[in-house]
């Protein structure tokens, strides 16, 4: 909620501001709630000035209203599809990870979530000059593993990954704010070329705030986090890849963790099927949510110790 401040426009000077405040109009939402004529009546500010303040607020704080045709063309022009580096996975995802979307990989411990992240990271690095941000909450990032997993990836490619280590949700939110600010600023080449943001693993920073018992605060933080991730995805045209754990759901089925608010967040969700035999290297991956196509597609991935994933 933004407070009305002088300097927003010429008509909103200190004198007008005092008149508004004495009538309990403090924020721009308060201002818009009231009819312009009503504001004139109760405060005695000139009608012309009220209208011009109103128009400035509307112009400055409302979102862009985009025509469907223009929206389509801008999507066609600036969206990219990033290969995950795993052929069978790309096939069930209609080509790979789409920019402007949040893709989630949900799976149990040791089911290969981080491996898929590293593989996607490596495959993005070998394509052109794109950069990757890897937000690591569990110390799972390994540059050596990326080199192992990606055939054409050399050591200087890996310099195009920035790794952020975060341990709490507050740190995560401030890192996301920093990334947003630097991208908007547009001065650094790294942030101009940003194409992929990986968050591995979201659950480990959110769990601690779920356990403090205050549902309003924890759900509020999850909503805030999801809006920030979505803003990075859609506002900067970046592909966002998030990993998450699985928990037992309402009907005994395994679902992604973090509750119903989070369940709505990803555009595409991949679920790695549970496998009791951890020593086996194959995992079955299934599309369990997809906003732009069919769900239910599945593939089997073989994680090998050396070399790329088959």
């Amino acid at each position: 909620m933004s407070i009305l401040k002088s300097g927003l426009c010429v008509a909103l000077n200190d004198e007008v501001l005092i008149k508004l405040r004495s009538n309990c109009i403090r924020t721009n939402v308060d201002f818009l709630c009231k009819d312009p004529e009503q504001i004139v009546n109760i405060t005695g500010i000139a009608y012309k000035d009220v209208i011009s303040i109103r128009n400035i607020i509307l112009a400055k704080y409302s979102s862009m209203i985009v025509d469907g045709g223009d929206f389509y063309h801008s999507i066609i022009e600036c969206s990219t599809i990033l290969s995950s580096g795993i052929k069978s996975l790309d096939e069930i995802l209609d080509g790979g990870l789409y920019s402007r979307e949040v893709t989630e990989i949900a799976g149990d411990i040791a089911s290969g979530k981080t491996q898929i992240c590293l593989c996607t990271c490596g495959s993005t690095l070998t394509r052109g000059i794109q950069t990757v941000i890897y937000i690591d909450t569990g110390a799972g990032f390994s540059a050596r593993r990326i080199l192992q997993l990606t055939p054409n990836c050399s050591e200087n490619f890996v310099s195009r990954v920035h790794v952020f280590d975060v341990t709490t949700i507050y740190e995560l939110l401030s890192v996301l704010d920093k990334i947003l600010a630097l991208c908007k600023d547009g001065k650094l080449d790294f942030y101009k070329r940003l194409n992929l943001l990986i968050l591995d693993n979201v659950a480990s920073v959110v769990y601690p705030c779920l356990s403090n018992g205050n549902i309003v605060e924890s759900q509020g933080l999850i909503s805030l986090l999801s809006q920030k991730l979505k803003y990075i995805a859609t506002g900067l045209s970046v592909a966002v890849l998030v990993t998450n754990n699985l928990v037992k759901g309402e009907h005994g089925k395994k679902v992604a963790s973090l509750g119903r608010v989070w369940l709505n967040v990803p555009n595409v969700r991949l679920t790695i099927e549970q496998n009791d035999q951890y020593y086996k290297t194959t995992r079955k991956v299934m599309v369990t949510k997809n906003n732009r196509g069919k769900i239910g597609g599945s593939c089997t991935i073989n994680f090998t110790e050396h070399g790329p994933i088959q």
């Binding site: 909620m1 721009n28 939402v29 409302s62 209203i65 985009v66 025509d67 469907g68 045709g69 803003y231």
Partner: peptide, 24 residues
């Protein structure tokens, strides 16, 4: 393209923004 012209898309990231955009 002519059909898409009839659709207007607004992305909102918080409720203030939704409220102000509904006014505009």
């Amino acid at each position: 393209g002519s059909c898409l012209k009839r659709l207007k898309i607004v992305l909102c990231y918080n409720s203030d923004q939704l409220f102000i955009t509904l006014h505009s």
